[in-house]
Amino acid sequence: MEKRGLAPIRLKIQIIYTILTNGYLYGYISGKIYKGGMKYACVPGLNCYSCPGALGSCPMGALQNALNEQNLKVPFGVLGFLFFFGSLFGRFVCGFLCPFGLVQDLLHRIPLLKKYKRKRLPFHQVLKYGKYPVLLGLVILGSSVLFTGYVKMPAFCKYLCPSGTLMGALPLMGTNSQLRSLAGGLFGWKLGVLVLLLIVSVMVYRPFCQYLCPLGAIYGWFNRFSLVQIQWTKEACISCGACQNACPLQLTPPEISVSPECIKCGQCIKACPAHCLQYKSMGGNKLNSNDIVTDITEDM
């Protein structure tokens, strides 16, 4: 792996991934959604399956749909996708493979409201746990016990998910007058949530990912042991703080990669003057030549 990591090409990867997974152009023109076989599979990131261009299924939507079943059973299919992507990537998915993450990244680049630009919201240490109540309350409990009439509802999608509003509702309503005529108070609420998050994204780095995303909460649990890791070589570290300054989430070197907040964007690797941070796959028990030399001299 190149020393400077993937950070310089992250934006390109995000854009290419978003186009590839939302490339059903006919859907944008016709106001209809893709109905092909690729929708049997979930994509790794938060990607509304009602986006006219979406070629895959959203893992959060699919999880809630499984919990909406009258006879509660373990949703093995969705768990399979989550374990698969989580074990390989952890929150690397958030950094590289999430269209809504890309939108927030682009908004944060806008050189407006510079005076208010910050990496975190006040009370970050408390607010960062907000994604767990969203996961437990809206996604799991909400989808299991809340009803619309006699039908259970996907509570997260219905009341919070900004990806559904941005990538699903707006393009569909733009081309489908029937849907537009049905928009009411709930749509107004969801649009309000989206607009608020988009405005805050200009000032704060990825507010939805940091404080609200239930998928980020799930992948955060995998972060510590996923295949893709950023390795910090403590011995080579000169404690200059460049990595923490460059980190969009202000993580310290021991937190990088293992913290549930780290999205493995690689900015720390790019910033490190001592080259003590690098992408590495986990589990190889790799030791460098210096360690071996040290061991030999200790044995002697």
Binding site: I33, Y34, K35, G37, K39, Y40, A41, C42, C48, Y49, S50, A54, G56, S57, C58, G61, A62, N65, A66, E69, P75, F76, G77, V78, T148, M153, P154, C157, K158, C161, G164, T165, G168, A169, L172, M173, L179, L182, A183, G184, L186, F187, G188, W189, K190, L191
Partner: peptide, 21 residues
Amino acid sequence: GDLTAIYKKAVMICLECIGIG
């Protein structure tokens, strides 16, 4: 049959997702 259930949901416009349902 979970994947079939995912597919069936994903090929219909999700009214909740777009703020109508």
